[in-house]
């Protein structure tokens, strides 16, 4: 399945909406096992993306992702800045010659792994990104799937990121970065009309 500029623009706008609506949910999740600012940081990123897109309408998919990446890198502040920023920057490079959605998300997922030196089962956003990109590659992704990926982080013990300092105590809480990633992919499914 390919993604058009129009669909991707809708996707990003829906993501911005979800981040603005769920700022306190993300902060609460992050208070349990982090420093409590994931919602605030992502909301700041969302507003920066909105501002950048209002200033200049991207001409193609690559430019859209680049605009998103730079807004996030400059404004988010926390660890999610370089992580989401790298994902969108790598997707922007890939989108110059590729519009297949599964491939793009796969490249984004690999970017996050490289930046965070992380992989699945570490209780990070990769636990949503990695299975999502695989499901897309198999041509089937539903909101229920995304929700399952998110929920799988609950019983994991964190071995990367701030939550890893809590060791066993990180168990029993959803990973905040996985929750914001779930918003991202819910928004994607809505934009693609699924």
């Amino acid at each position: 399945m390919t993604i058009t500029l129009e669909q991707a623009t809708k996707w990003i706008n829906l993501f911005i909406e979800k981040l603005e609506q769920n700022r306190s949910t993300l902060n609460e999740l992050d208070t349990a096992i982090g420093d409590g600012d994931h919602g605030t940081n992502m909301d700041r990123g969302a507003k920066a993306i909105k501002e950048a897109l209002a200033k200049k309408t991207p001409a193609d998919l690559s430019e859209l992702f680049k605009t998103v990446a730079f807004a996030i890198i400059q404004k988010v502040g926390g660890a999610s800045g370089p992580l989401y920023g790298t994902a969108f920057l790598d997707m922007s490079k890939e989108a110059k010659s590729e519009s297949d959605l599964a491939k793009l998300i796969g490249v984004g997922s690999d970017g996050i792994k490289r930046r965070g030196q992380s992989d699945v089962k570490m209780k990070t956003m990769i636990d949503v990104w990695d299975p999502t990109s695989q499901a897309l590659a198999n041509g089937q992704l539903t909101k229920e799937d995304v929700n399952n990926y998110l929920n799988s982080t609950k019983d994991m013990v964190a071995t990367k990121g701030r939550a890893s300092y809590l060791e066993q105590k990180s168990k029993g809480h959803l990973d905040p970065g996985s929750q914001s990633s779930a918003y991202l992919f819910d928004a994607l499914l809505e934009a693609m009309g699924a």
């Binding site: 502040g77 660890a79 800045g81 370089p82 992580l83 930046r115 965070g116 701030r162």
Partner: peptide
């Protein structure tokens, strides 16, 4: 010092 300083540095 911590995680995102490192990630931003690497970026």
């Amino acid at each position: 010092d911590l995680g995102s300083s490192k990630m931003n540095l690497e970026m």
